[in-house]
Design a protein around this nucleic acid. Structure first.
Length: 509
RNA sequence: CGCGGGGUGGAGCAGCCCGGUAGCUCGCGAGGCUCAUAACCUCGAGGUCGGAGGUUCAAAUCCUCCCCCCGCAACCA
């Protein structure tokens, strides 16, 4: 049984979670759920990137300690992910000295022992107002735009990771044809590859404690704190207890590893991370799934524009599955996407209420009127067996929007078939029951297709249909068998349950 | 010539890799049905597929050049 280790980027909790965080987690969760359904063993990891200068600064501005800030914000992420039914196994917080730091320190030591770390003088411009290094291009007329002062030229001793040595190795690893680390979708990888062609430079791996105090201390160097790379990325290992006495190596060494991350940090995950792993003698991941960004009504979300969409507002209004549906249906994997309340409402009505909910309702109500007994006859199945083939291929190819649209094209075709057959006018009771049963059977298949995307909805549909496996379908061990995908395979399924409204109308905002 | 993405009926998008009736959602017009959450179905109006060349029997789809929009351009996650 293949083993799958999926991890998302860990999130930066200097503010409350936004729609972009949600998109990434839903994407990873759809993948995790699909892998489980097809029979793989799955571990899904998420977390919070709590260290760094920005957290330090934000905390200061709010008059709290960094620890207080992350203790306040990180749970917001975790709670949101739970509410979204993200089936994660671990939530790592990088300020956790017990779960996270030992792995980080061990990795650091390995890199150092391998001769991949080197102490150098880092020269840069330091703005005392920002309390951080700034670059030339940040400056306006040579001054810090925020503090209107000239940054000082500062030199400090830092550790560097010798990434430049790994250029050829990374080219080989990421080679579109022969490399073992695949970037999905491939066009997202192009940017990374061309960047790689430009040549790699060594990366700064630590800061002086005066510059950065909130982070993982460098072993044996009291005045140095690790800079983001060694700390943040390593959470993917620390969640498995790597390099400790409770490490779960099988989830790395004997697993297919997928990173789910945004286009902005693709480069670091595609290059820096596998380079670090190679240098530490650890296997590199198999797949990098790169998603785009989400805009709000076509514009970049920004507090100044006041167009930030708060995920919990959507959840309060529409519930979990409609949001999961919207993101999966509207945004092809890798593409940028847009969130708009208008579009959300339209899609909710058109697809979820009018097409899906209505089909389920009209079929069940009529069947109930005939007594609720199921009987699948020789009546032509209105469900093309190719649908499963197309669906499975799309799911395996990470074309999730294509897959969910396949499910909805089955629904649309069924509504049409329902009218064409004028089911409600069929006089012969046996024929009527057989015809309606066929629609119930179609909906059983549709619910299974929707299961990775809208788990609760899939179960509610199946509950109304009263299919035999309804109570197991949200279990992690629930596997989609070939038998389940066969027409009329549920011999124990004798009668349907009570019809209910699947998606109620939601008032316009 | 820095890199990548995009430019498709009123709006938002898919199709482009593997050329061959231009598809989806919403909106609009007409009709059908009345089982169903005033939902469902059918038909219709509306597009020189950014522009110009080229390849081809045939191009939204391949090639070349140009224009416009967005992101990135390295330590900022």
């Amino acid at each position: 049984m293949p083993r799958q280790y999926i991890h998302t980027a860990i999130d930066f909790p200097n503010a409350a979670p936004h729609m972009g965080h949600v998109m990434e987690k839903v994407l990873a969760d759809v993948m995790a759920r699909w892998f489980r359904l097809r029979g793989d063993e799955v571990r899904l990891h998420v977390g919070a990137d709590e260290n760094g200068i920005k957290i330090q600064q934000t905390a200061e501005a709010l008059g709290m300690t960094p620890q207080e800030l992350v203790d306040r914000n990180s749970p917001l992420f975790e709670q949101l992910f739970r509410r979204l039914n993200i089936s994660f196994d671990t939530f790592i917080r990088t300020s956790d000295p017990k779960r996270h730091w030992p792995t980080v320190v061990a990795l650091w030591n390995r890199l150092k022992e391998g001769g991949f770390l080197e102490k150098r003088t880092y020269a840069g411009l330091y703005c005392t107002g920002c309390e951080r290094f700034v670059t030339e291009k940040d400056l306006v007329d040579g001054l810090c735009p925020d503090h209107r002062q000239r940054p000082e030229a500062v030199k400090e001793e830092n550790w560097f990771f010798l990434l430049s040595r790994k250029q050829d190795a990374m080219k080989k690893l990421l080679h579109p044809k022969t490399g073992t680390y695949k970037m999905v979708p491939s066009w997202r990888g192009n940017e990374v590859l061309s960047f790689l062609e430009g040549g790699l430079e060594d990366v700064s791996f630590s800061r002086s404690k005066e510059t950065l105090s909130w982070g993982v201390p460098v072993p044996d160097e009291p005045d140095q704190v690790m800079y983001v790379w060694c700390d943040n990325l390593t959470s993917y290992l620390s969640s498995l207890g790597f390099f400790t006495d409770h490490e779960m190596r099988e989830w790395w060494d004997d697993a297919e590893i997928t990173d789910v991350i945004g286009k902005d940090i693709a480069r670091f995950h595609a290059i820096n991370w596998p380079a670090m792993l190679q240098c530490a003698g650890v296997k590199t991941p198999e797949r990098l799934l790169i998603h785009g960004f989400i805009t709000s009504d076509g514009q970049k979300m920004s507090k100044t524009l006041g167009n930030v969409v708060v995920p919990s507002d959507v959840l309060d209004r529409y519930g979990v599955d409609p949001l999961r549906f919207y993101l999966s249906h509207e945004i092809p994997v890798g593409n940028d996407g847009d969130f708009s309340w208008k579009r959300f409402g339209e899609l909710y009505d058109a697809k979820l209420r009018n097409q899906l909910g209505n089909l389920l309702n009209r079929a069940l109500v009529l069947l109930k009127k005939e007594g609720g007994e199921m009987k699948l006859g020789a009546a032509a199945q209105a469900f093309s067996p190719d649908s499963w083939g197309r669906y499975v291929k799309a799911m395996n190819d990470f074309d999730y929007s294509v897959a969910i649209q396949e499910a909805f094209s089955v629904v649309a075709a069924s509504n049409q078939g329902f009218n064409d057959a004028a089911v409600w006018t069929i006089a012969d009771k046996a024929t009527k029951i057989e015809t309606l049963s066929a629609f119930a059977e179609i909906l059983r298949h549709v619910a299974l297709m929707l299961l990775p995307f809208m788990p609760e909805t899939a179960q509610r549909m199946s509950r109304q249909l009263n299919v035999p496996y309804v109570d197991q379908m949200l279990d992690r061990s629930f596997v989609l068998t070939d038998e389940m995908k066969d027409w009329g395979s549920q011999k124990e399924w004798k009668r349907v349950g009570e019809p209910e409204i699947l998606f109620p109308p939601v008032e316009c905002k």
